[in-house]
Nucleic acid binder design. Structure first.
Lengths: 138, 138
DNA sequence: TGTAATTTTGTAATCATTTCAATTTTGAAA
DNA sequence: TTTCAAAATTGAAATGATTACAAAATTACA
C-alpha cells in the first residue's frame, strides 16, 4: 500500500493516522510474514530513530482492537501480526517455527456450535506439524 | 480417571508413570477447565509439598509432545492445557478471559488446504468474542 | 547391592509484555 | 497565529511466564 492507501485504510477502521501508525501499517502491508513486535521494531527503527517499542505494542493492540490486522496466537512465545485480514488459516512448523499461510475456502470455515450464550467475532484456525524442509533434514 | 486408568493412559502414550506425572494427569482428567501451569501447581502442591513448578512445566511439555494432552495458545499470556484430546474447539471471551469448550462435528473440521509441502499433525480452532455475562454487564 | 540412566528440584536467567509518568505532538478554539 | 487541552509517544522500570542448568533424588536393572 502507498501512503494514501494506508491513510484511507486506517481511517476506515477509525484510527487516526499518525506518522508511527502509518509506518507500522505500511510495514505490515508489505511484509506478510507474520512478524513479531520485535521484528517490526527492529526493521523500522533505523528510519525512525525515535520510535519506541512501547509504541509498536500500543499501535498493534489498537490495530487489533479495531480489526485492522489479525493477531495470531499460534506461537506460544510471541504474538504474530498479519496485515492480511482476509479469510485464511495458518500452519506452524513445530521444528523450525516457520509460519505459512494456508488458503481456506469459505465453506471450510467451521460454523460456530457453541450455543447462544457466546458471541464470536473472530475465528482462528491453526494447523501444526512439520514442513518438508525439516522432514528432509532429519 | 482412577490411578490405574491414569497409568494405562500414560503408558499408551509412551510415558513412564512417575508419581508426579500420574498426579498431574489425574488432575487434568478431573479439571477440564483449561488450567494454566500455575493453577495446576498451586492446586497440587498442598498434597505434594516437594513438587516443583519446573516439574509441572517439564511434565506438560512431555504430555503435549506425546499427544497425551492438548496445549491451547488461545490466550497470549499463558498456555492452557486440556486433558480432553477429542475433537472440539474453544471460545475465549475477550472481556473476562474465560475459556469455553465448543463442540464440533467431525464434518466441521476444515480440511487442510496447504499443499503437499506441509505435514499437519494437529488442528486448533479458536473462536474469540464476548460471553453473555460480559455483554449484560456493559 | 551397585551403578548408570532418568527424573525431579530450586535457583537464576531470559525475554515478552505491561505499567506509568513525563514529554511531545496534534487539533481545535480564540 | 497563539493558546491550551487532549491524544499520542517515549523510555525506564516492573512484572511475570518460561527456560536453562546443575545438583540431588529416584528408578531400573545388571
Amino acid at each position: 500500500m502507498n501512503i494514501q492507501e494506508v491513510h484511507h485504510h486506517l481511517k476506515e477502521h477509525d484510527i487516526k493516522p499518525s506518522v508511527q501508525r502509518v509506518a507500522i501499517m505500511q510495514y505490515l502491508s508489505e511484509h506478510l510474514t507474520h512478524p513479531t513486535i520485535d521484528q517490526i521494531y527492529h526493521d523500522l527503527v533505523p528510519d525512525m530513530p525515535t520510535l519506541s517499542k512501547t509504541t509498536v505494542y500500543n499501535t498493534l493492540k489498537l490495530f487489533y482492537d479495531k480489526k485492522a490486522v489479525l493477531a495470531l496466537f499460534i506461537d506460544e512465545k510471541n504474538v504474530r501480526y498479519d496485515g492480511d485480514t482476509s479469510n485464511h488459516a495458518h500452519f506452524k512448523c513445530k521444528k523450525c517455527g516457520a509460519i505459512y499461510d494456508v488458503p481456506l475456502e469459505a465453506a471450510d470455515i467451521p460454523s460456530f456450535g457453541g450455543g447462544s450464550d457466546l458471541y464470536p467475532e473472530e475465528t482462528q484456525i491453526y494447523f501444526l506439524g512439520t514442513c518438508k524442509k525439516c522432514i528432509q533434514n532429519q
